[in-house]
Structure formats: structure tokens, C-alpha cells
Design a protein around this nucleic acid. Sequence first.
DNA 1: CTGAAAGCGCTTACAG
DNA 2: CTGAAAGCGCTTACAG
Lengths: 346, 346
Amino acid sequence: MPKAVTLSDVAREAGVDLSTASRVLRGTGRVSATTRQRILDAADRLDFRPNAQAQFLATGISKTVGVLTINGYGTFTLPVLAGLTSTLGQQDVATLLYDVREDPEILQESVKKFRARQIDGLLVLGDGLQAPLHSVTANLQVPVVYAFATSDSPDDSCFMPDGEMAGRIAAEHLLALGRRRIATVTAADDIAAADRTRGLVETIRSAGGSLALDQPLERDWTRLWGAEAAERIADRIDEVDAVFCGNDQIALGILGVLRARGIRVPEDVALVGYDNWEGMVGQGNNLLTTVDPRLSEIGAAAARALVHAIDGSAAPGAHHEPCELVTGESTLGVGAAGPRDATTYR
Amino acid sequence: MPKAVTLSDVAREAGVDLSTASRVLRGTGRVSATTRQRILDAADRLDFRPNAQAQFLATGISKTVGVLTINGYGTFTLPVLAGLTSTLGQQDVATLLYDVREDPEILQESVKKFRARQIDGLLVLGDGLQAPLHSVTANLQVPVVYAFATSDSPDDSCFMPDGEMAGRIAAEHLLALGRRRIATVTAADDIAAADRTRGLVETIRSAGGSLALDQPLERDWTRLWGAEAAERIADRIDEVDAVFCGNDQIALGILGVLRARGIRVPEDVALVGYDNWEGMVGQGNNLLTTVDPRLSEIGAAAARALVHAIDGSAAPGAHHEPCELVTGESTLGVGAAGPRDATTYR
DNA sequence: CTGAAAGCGCTTACAG
DNA sequence: CTGAAAGCGCTTACAG
């Protein structure tokens, strides 16, 4: 292991004190142009990399943040996590991850470990569904940001997908295609589902219409529920020419039954899903028109917010990140859109 | 911000020198039982957490590892990444992630940043498909482990799913169910596909049989290919009573066409997929019997190997992590297996 | 068994 | 504008 070159090496090479070298390398304090150049050259020549650990000790900044994960391996949290860590990595900050699994004891453990490690901030990664998390902000003396979760304290900085926007862009797309009898099939008793439904219904109302079948059809997130709902829709097919589905599973369930009953998609009934599940799995079949929540962007936004908060400018409150419509055959028909031809609404 | 308690505080509280306190707290060197106890009590009373940054500087260990990601947001790399970071987190080591996107310049960049940060080791996270990665082991003076990838240097420590085992347990399951005319539909020109096929064929041969339809049907990983292959199978239905599919997409494509043509699954043809894609998406429909590559375990195993390598005991060579059969309706029929009732083969 | 001292590699008032 | 010094909080030979 070749001895690493240190700041003293650079100082000696440039013939100055190491405090002077430190100043020019951090760009702080006045230094004469020639001295500065000499030092910069020396650093360059020696290919100097400051020892981050030493800097951390001297400055009290660790350039590492803690990440607390509620359901670390959840399909939907995975992209958020990747967005988090990769954005943090770009900013040169490391990540110390603990999977909490809603176990309060582990939480205590983690907080202790975090303290030892002098983390600069904490990211709490939820599962995107649950009720508000109990705020841990007060327990720490570093900034906290909640990603894919909300906290029960209104001053906390939280990042979530914009469910209302999802409903809105789905409605706008369907209305633009001339659909006027838009129904929705989704999960019951779910805040996220309710947000999407609200965005949908409000947009339909603004256009002078109302939700087809009067009420949302609500039960759960499964393909099976989609299939059953499709039977009901098929029985009242005159009243429906489009369905916004709570997720892609439901959409797929509906698609299968509708086709089996001889109802054409999208000619008779257009379908819009949510999750961009195919996109996630990298297939790009373009079967379904769907709303992509851009989960990795949720993580990225939360990470950026945390870095800013560490720098002193917090962004308290709930933030809803924009989603994106990804068009496919279930609204445009076969061959209408190129593969992964995403239309972005803002 | 309440001043943190330091080792000197503990030493003073216990009435000893801080070097002595350091020794007992790290469990190194002989110290009398009573002194030891006094120090331990003091540390406890003060709730002392050693400043990790200071320890790092003093010992030269950073407790952070670099992670280089080839395709950071790939559906299949996501669980591996989560397995990595979470296993590392449990061991109290932080993670510094850079997404390389096969860009050699970024790689150089990253190596420099890693050097500055004194990382203890490096994890290279591949995409599970590509040809061997170019080994970067020689460029660093810290241990390197490749996860979900192989390197072009045979001494490197690499962790991959066990593709042959996947084919084997699929075959064993189908044979156990009495199937004797097993075909396979998979991708062409793909090492991973070839491994699974080999495991399948060898197991069938050991049982005294041979692959149905003589040859593997090979093209790509899409559902569309599954559907087309299913047409061919349907035309020669007498020769086939089971299909091992290269992935779940293909399986789903086959399933749809077979049913549309009045061929019963699993009664006439049993289907086994690969990826446990449904499981990934958290639905647990149990529609498909499939082989779960346990991707997060790949990451976990690689992380453990890296930690061991850092401690001095490397595990060079290619490691194939066991996969797992997850049974579903496509081989056992409706209601046969409970939800996510996984059968583990070893 | 225990203490006094040097050192890890930087940063940052403080003088001059 | 630049240098000498103290300090960040620990670890670890080295004496005694």
C-alpha cells in the first residue's frame, strides 16, 4: 500500500505552511495569486486527495446520512431507495441503512448507532401506503426528511407521489381521446387511492361531466378484484367507455375479462392504470397506458431536500412530486405509441 | 446541540487516564477487574458513544464501502442493491454509491472519490446479464467483490444466482408431479438462459428422459415470444405436458395462449417460470409456479463476503447462490398451495 | 496494570 | 498575505 500523499506533502512541495495550503485548497481566505498557483500545481503534481476522515474530524461533518427503512424490500420502496442512495452518492455523501420493520426497539438501536457515527441527517423511507409515520424528528438533533411517507407532524419535510395529479392526467388523457363515460376501479379505505380518485373526479367535473357508474368501484389492489369489477362493468357497458384503474394489476384483471366478454379495448373501453409496472419490470410491452409515479424521483427529491436542510435551508411540509403518463395500447390502440414513448404532463 | 460526551469525560468520571478507558472500551490489553468495572459504569452512566470519525482517523478504517452500479435502477438489480446496503448497514458499514452507466470516465472519477474517502472495500453491482465485467480489482488497493456480475479475472470474488440449480429444481418439481414430456421456452444467446436450460436438461436425463420437442425454443425474454412459442406447442400438444419458461413474462404469454386454445393449465400442461416476478410486485397471486432467484440474498452474500475480505479472509472465485421454488397454480392447480407457500430445495 | 505522550491528517482562530 | 499553534476525539506503542 503506497503511502497516501497528505496536505503536508503538498505544502512542502510548494514551500509553504500547510495552513496556507489548506486555505487555498478549500478556497477560503486571501492568498496571493502566485502562492495559490504554486500550491495548486503542487497538489496537482502529487495528485493530492484530502483525507476525508481527517476533514470530518476537524469539521464535525461526516458526509454520511442515516436511512431508516420501514419495508426495505418492498417492490415500490426499492426504486425510491435507489433514487435516494444514488443522488446522495452523486453529492458524495454516504448512506448508513437500517431496516426497521416497524420495530420500535430497532429504532432506538439505530438512533444510538447514528449518534455514534455523527450522521449529518436522517432519511426515513416509508412504504408509501401506511398512515402517517410517528415523527422521529424531535429525537434527533439533525435534519430529518421523510420519503415515500408522511409524518404526523406538519412541520416535517415529506415527499410523496402526487396522487391527485395522477387522477388528473389520467382524466385529461381520456377526455382528450373523447371519452365521456369514465369509471374508476380501485382499492377501498386507502388514502392514496382516494387522492387519485379525487383528482380524476375533479377533472371530470371541471369538464362538465361526472363519474360513470356514479361511484368508484372499491375493494382491493388485486388483479382478481379487477376481474370481478370488469364483470360488473360489462353488465353496464353502455354507461362506460373508459376506466381509470387504481393500479396496473387491476387494469390487467379488467383487460382480461373485458376481452373474454368480447368488449374491445380501447375501442369500446379505454383503460388507464397506475404504477407503470411493466416499465418497472423493464419490458416495455406498451400494453397498458399507465401513470408512472416516478418513484426514484421521490427518493432523489428527498435526498436533495435533506442535503439542503443540512446546508441550512430546510423545506418543511408535504411535497408532492409530479407523476407522468406513459401511453400504451389500452388507450391508443395497437401500434399507436412507440415503445416507452412517455408523454409528460406538468 | 448538547455537547457530546467524549472519552475524556468517561475517563474523568472514572478517575483514570483516557488511554486506560480506551483500552477497556475496546476490550484490548489487561486491566484490573475493578478499574474495568468503574470505567464501564462511567461509560454507561454518561451514555457514552465513541465518535466514529475520530476512531476512523486513528485507525485508518472508514467503515464505508463504495458501491459501483452498472444499471442502478434495473428491476433486477434493485433487490440486490437493497440486500447489499441493508446487510452492510447491519454491520454498521456505510455505503457510498455511484452509478457508472458503463461510462469509463465516471469510473475514473469514482475511483478518485473513493480514494479520498478511504473506503475499506468496493462492491461492483452488475446487471446480472452482461458478459463478464472488466475487472477493476487491480486498480484499487482494497478488496473488491462483484455482485450480480462476473468479472473477467478468475480470482475475483463474484456472486450470481445459481442458474443450473434453477433448471434442476424446476425439473425435479415437474418430474415429481409425474410429468415426463418437459419442454423449455427461453431466450437465445444468453448465458443465464443457457445455464437454466442445462440444469433442466441434465436433470431430465438423469431421470432417464429427454427434453420434449428435442430442442429448447429460444428467442427473447418477452411475453410476446411466450405467446408465439405457445402456438407452436399447441400444435404439438401430444408431445408436451410441461414447460419450463425462461422467465415469468414468457410463462404468462404461454399461459394466455394455451388457455385461449382450450388447453388446461396445469392439467394438460404444467408451467414453471423464473424470477418470481409476482412475488416481487408483492401480489402473491400464486398464479405461477416459479423459481425465485432470491436476488436480495445475492446482495447480502456479496456484502458479507466483502466484510470478510476486509477482515482479511477473502473468498475468491465464482459463487452461485441457491434459488428457491415458489409453487403456484400453474403446476399445482387452483387452491393447491397457500399464498406464498414457498418450497425450498437445496 | 496504568499513565504520559505522540500521532492520525486536517481546519481555523490568532498573530504578525 | 502567511505562519505557528491548538484542537477535533480517539488509538497505541512506550515506559514505568
